[in-house]
């Protein structure tokens, strides 16, 4: 795998509402997605992971506003550009063709009154208006086949498909324009465990074949450990730790990451004792001072409530490929 970036998020800030009452849902996030990798994004509900995904594609519903930062997209053959600076027209062309999204609501992501075929082909109509109807249909059938749905379901309506099939249609739809980046926002939350694994397995296989990059958002860290290359952990709108999946799993540095990891049974490896994280996620409208995790942190000490720790390379072994924002692990140099 090359370490060439495809999507760079720089100092992204997203707020809900305006003025003094605005809630900062994403704070100074720096994150780089490399070509061909699966980047996992984990955190409790309200940690800002979905907002981050909506923000970088500019899909935030009002009153969500991007208040700062850059999202640099690197096309395969031309110069990089800032997605946040695109005109409406350029943004429409960028969406789906470069960055497609699979949303969490598998049940509600398809328009109930149109056939599957209509919803697959209208993407092609919007992005490649010169394509003939015949080619469009052939392409749609090909995508259904790719995700394991019989092409004769083209004329089915969404309510005639099961939840798993609908989500597979969504994945097929996401890949129809061969985007460089696919954002998966809890794609399997609404499905049962068997279906989850089946769909994710299929997705990873498709990624190897088609070579797109994935941002995989979930609260289920166990899935990420298995399916992603790198994992970023979010808490209170900030990224608190980022490292290769195996490193996080074996040796998480941030107490919050450790808490998350010990709150579910591992898919593989020896049995461990399960423990939850005490307390509840912070109120984004009234964040604690300093490190936002310190009220719940078992290892909080003096600087934690005073100063916000900066995300950077930790002063620890194999610290080169990872970063963490914690006073327990003072950073050598900030990243980003």
């Amino acid at each position: 795998m090359t370490m060439e970036p495809v999507l760079e998020i720089r100092n992204l800030n997203v707020e809900y509402g305006l003025g003094d009452k605005a809630v900062r849902a994403v704070r100074d996030v720096n994150l780089t997605l490399h070509r061909g990798e699966v980047l996992g994004l984990a955190g409790e509900s309200g940690s800002g992971k979905s907002t981050l995904a909506y923000g970088l594609t500019r899909l935030l519903a009002p009153p969500g506003v991007i208040t700062g930062g850059e999202v640099i997209y690197h096309p395969e053959k031309s110069d990089p550009y800032d997605v946040l600076g695109l005109s409406d027209k350029a943004l429409r062309a960028f969406r789906w063709a470069e960055t497609a999204i699979v949303f969490q609501g598998a049940m509600n992501s398809l328009n109930p009154v149109h056939k599957i075929s209509t919803q697959l082909t209208d993407v092609l109509k919007a992005h490649e208006p010169k394509m003939s109807d015949h080619t469009r249909n052939a392409r749609a059938r090909e995508m259904l086949k790719l995700v394991g749905i019989s092409p004769d379901r083209m004329d089915a309506y969404p309510h005639q498909l099961s939840g798993g099939m609908r989500q597979r249609v969504m994945i097929g739809m996401a890949l129809i324009l061969q985007p460089q980046v696919v954002i998966m926002d809890e794609p399997t939350t609404a499905l049962d465990v068997v279906m989850q694994r089946q769909i994710l397995g299929q997705l990873i296989e498709l990624r190897e074949r088609l070579g797109f990059s994935v941002i995989f958002i979930t609260h289920d860290l166990s899935l990420l450990v298995e399916f992603s290359n790198r994992i970023a952990i979010m808490y209170g709108g900030r990224i608190v730790e980022e490292a290769p999946a195996a490193t996080i799993y074996r040796d998480a540095l941030h107490p919050y990451s450790k808490g998350l990891l010990s709150s579910f049974p591992a898919l593989r490896g020896p049995r461990r004792e399960l423990a939850g994280i005490p307390g509840s996620p912070p109120d984004l409208a009234g964040m604690p001072s300093g490190c936002s995790f310190h009220p719940r942190c078992p290892r909080a000490f003096e600087p934690c409530s005073q100063h916000i720790p900066v995300l950077g390379r930790p002063d620890a072994q194999n610290g080169a490929a990872r970063s963490v924002a914690c006073w327990l692990h003072p950073t050598e140099q900030p990243v980003g």
Binding site: R92, R95, A97, I101, S109, L110, P112, H114, V123, H127
Partner: peptide, 23 residues
């Protein structure tokens, strides 16, 4: 959700409003 999906698909505002929302 399907309205957000329609926006994410890069469909024109008009198509989203008429064919997805109004319909």
């Amino acid at each position: 959700d399907y309205i957000t999906v329609a926006h994410a698909k890069g469909l024109s505002e008009r198509r989203v409003a008429v064919s997805y929302a109004a319909r």
